[in-house]
Design a protein around this nucleic acid. Structure first.
Lengths: 208, 208
DNA sequence: TATAATAATGACCGGGTGGTCAATTTAGCT
DNA sequence: AGCTAAATTGACCACCCGGTCATTATTATA
């Protein structure tokens, strides 16, 4: 079976990079519907026909790009999870938030694509993608909460589903606001350490 | 000073209603950029020139509509706030969540416009509007938390700003998920009472 | 170097957009 | 009824969209 991005993957690395960069820029600045293939080819410095040769449709280009974004997110999450297995819940939560902040700093455009995907209703297959991400997040935070329950750091009779939901709500919202503040230039209304401390205290108390 | 919606407001009520209904339908089903003035006039059964006579631009029609949506939201919030001044924090929180659920049930399309506005980045003046809503929410939840602190139901040394943030995050996320589940037909994966109870317990413990 | 295969190009297509405005219908007034 | 002013209309405009494909440029093979 030949993937739909096969032709693209056989391109010289430099050209691939240019196209990916242009696409990431476009999809991070505009939502799916208003992002323009014309603008992408312009930015990438290639002909329109070429782009449609590499990716049959706008939708398939978008899929390629958001998979890339989600892949990066996953890598950050996996890394911090593995690096903190032995830490107590509180410290672990802190590291996770830090890692999120780091991701936003390192990849602001990918972060934007990620948040766009989660919070807006327009991307193709949105429902499927979002529910996949939901599962991912559930597994991820679920594991961390379970570990803490096993160690008696959190109430072992917790409704884990709800606990995950609360954690997910606050973490995502915090990172989204942080990302927005950052891209508007007023990031340091957030005293980050203060917030991270507040979040961890709140959760360790609330879920005790 | 003559408002830009002056001409619209002088229309017969029935015609106004038709136009508002068509606009609400369109703006709830599509985001700002992809919502179509052509579709609005089609739905409303009026000529395109007429709509642009009542509202000079798409943006001004949108403003009219979302003000309407936010006005309704505010009315619900005010009502539940005033009806619960004497209740303890826990009961009060329950009523607020219930009221949100009720709003979604009564006005699903307005709810959609509201969530679109908050969570997607495309509406005109989005930044200004969102920060206004932020203030509104801060005042509203801030007042309720302050009341609870005054009555020693919550820790009087709480960082109120953070407490509001946590509450806002979880409430908004819960209502958004509820709204989405409802519009996909699988609303009763939410055992609502269970969730409302979980939320209130979590917060009373977490902010104690 | 001649030929075949492959890659890249951009003019072009049908269709949709927000917005305009001359022409027509309707309403109000004497 | 006759006249005027206001309201309504929809054809039309310039622009942009995703996508196509005949033509051209490049590369590989001999």
């Amino acid at each position: 079976m030949i993937s739909s991005t096969n032709k693209f993957e056989q391109l010289p690395t430099e050209k691939q990079a240019r196209i990916v960069d242009a696409s990431v820029a476009e999809f991070s600045e505009r939502n799916y519907e208003t992002a323009s293939m014309n603008k992408v080819v312009e930015r990438a410095g290639i002909a329109k026909g070429s782009l449609f040769n590499y990716f049959k449709t706008k939708s398939s280009l978008y899929h390629h790009i958001y998979h890339l974004a989600i892949g990066e997110v996953k890598a950050y999450l996996r890394k911090v999870r593995d690096e903190t297995v032995d830490l107590p819940f509180e410290k672990r939560l802190t590291k996770i938030v830090d890692s999120g902040v780091q991701f936003i700093t390192d990849h602001p455009r990918l972060a934007r694509i990620y948040f766009r995907l989660i919070y807006s209703a327009d991307s193709p297959n949105r429902q499927k993608i979002v529910s996949e991400l939901q599962v991912l997040s559930n597994d991820y935070l679920g594991e961390i909460i379970q570990d803490a329950m096993d160690r008696n750091e959190l109430d072992p009779n917790l409704d884990k589903g709800q606990a995950v939901f609360f954690l997910d709500s606050v973490l995502n919202r915090f990172l989204k606001d942080y990302h927005e503040a950052k891209s508007h230039g007023d990031a340091d209304q957030f005293n980050r350490d203060e917030w991270v401390k507040g979040i961890t205290i709140f959760f360790t108390k609330g879920l005790k």
